[in-house]
Nucleic acid binder design. Sequence first.
DNA 1: TCAAGATGCGCG
DNA 2: AAAGCGCGCATCTTGA
Length: 559
Amino acid sequence: MERTLKDLSTQPCVLIAHNAKFELGWMRRHGIPLQNFLPFDTMLAEYVLAGNRPWPLDLDSIAQKYRLGSKGRLIDRLMKGGVCPSEMPEQLLAQRCESDVSLTTQLFYLQRELLEQAGLTRVVYTRCVTTPVLTIMESEGMLLDHAAVAAEYDSLIQRRAHLQTALTALAAGVNLRSGKQMGEFLYTTLGFREMKDRHGNPLRTATGRPRTDSLALSSLTATTDSQKHFLKLKQEHSKIDSALTKTLDFFYRVCEERGATFRAQFHQSRTRTHRLSSSGRRLGFSDGSERGVQFQNLPRAYKRLFVARNGNLIVEADGAQLEFRVGGSLAHDPQILRDVQEGADVHRFTASVLHRIPEDQVTKRQRDGAKADTFKPMYGGMSGTPRQKAYYEAFRQKYHSLHSTQQGWTMSVLRDGCLRTASGLTFYWPGTRMDQSGYVQNSSSIFNYPIQSLATAEIIPISLVYLFWLAAAETPSVRFVNTVHDSVVAEVPAKELDKYRALVVESFLNRTYEFMDKVYGIDLYVPLGVSIRAGTRWGEGEEVVTSDPYRGGSSEDAT
DNA sequence: TCAAGATGCGCG
DNA sequence: AAAGCGCGCATCTTGA
């Protein structure tokens, strides 16, 4: 007897598909509930087997690699050419569907063996259980506040016009957006001296052109008032121009023409560390332009332009110091554990070394300025001023267990060309060598991948999946709208806020510990923490930090 | 005229 | 000689 997908969706069911999010998206649009489907995604399986190797992930390429034959090219060409399936030869289309199903099935059986041999089955399922959640989240989109967007847009448009007039007077005929023209103007016409490294070599772009980005501009020594004036105007112009062209112009049009809501996609197989990436769904506008904005690099200052639907609250849950703590767990670093237990202010330590003063004399300004340096040495950062280097050295000494663990990773890559990490996911750096000075190629990536990967490709997705399904059962009117590496954003009715907060703590801490232990055999040595912020607009509201209540951590208000 | 590369800039 | 990691999008430049 034939059963429909809708029948199947009422009981637990494994769905085997290549790029399952695509199929799940169609099922969702047809009103089929997704909670009973466990996908096995052959694309994600291949991605997990690849680790950080850039293997092709389309079904055709994989089928060829496994010698499963190739699917018909004609339908592919028609699809690419934008032909609607209803216009395609029915016979060919049916053949193509059957061939896809057959290829995917054969691929599944082959991958199942390979994954088991490699100890990667659990990693694949961790990826796969995230897919239905992302499918639903992608379909929600995020809502802008029309009035707030319009006000910000008008003010930036005006300001940019003003800056443009002023800059044109100072740099007639120079295209402010052209690095080439800007470089000639700065370093030839105005005669600025380029930023140099400590050996006196100019810091150039990859192709040897002088840099004109904001960092380079702020390093220039302006001698005259008009030079100072120009630099100031140009830096402000770059910032405003980038905000307008990349973000606000799009927001404004979305509000005017698209009901103030826009969507993005999440990609599970794009990054080397297996964290997610995002890209915007492109929208066409009345001026003929077509553009999109992704969800993971929105300017922080513009979070306040987003609101929840139905007058609800926007709630952001954030993994506290996530990579630092996960690094501490992987290395069993007692100093990181102490820092977390005592709620130490890591940036204050940075500032005290940089400014050579005791920690209790560090000002807020010095502390904030030190933030950029704090975690640079965690991923192998070495270069900088003598004081920065002194700090990097101090970091390596203070967290010596972390550093020696990372060196151990580097040594095993030198020996084997690859590194198997805590989850089993393996990264490959073939041909890695040490040079005369003792510097190992790829060492920064080797320091980073195991930490970034466990933190943002395993821990947060699992927390998200637990939170999503707990909320579906207990606070069903909560709508999940975004996730950004260490955070989850949801729209929550005010009267359900307390209940939702409890679910966040339960999922980000207890359930995640349980999963990491049962599935991966990983006992997190440093407790995780989660901070929650709830407000009418995204990013507003008091932040409340919770450390693990069962591991001696404390609950405190963040400052 | 078009595609690919380079650059700059936003986020964690 | 130099050396934090990971992304996506807009714009300009380059080369065919």
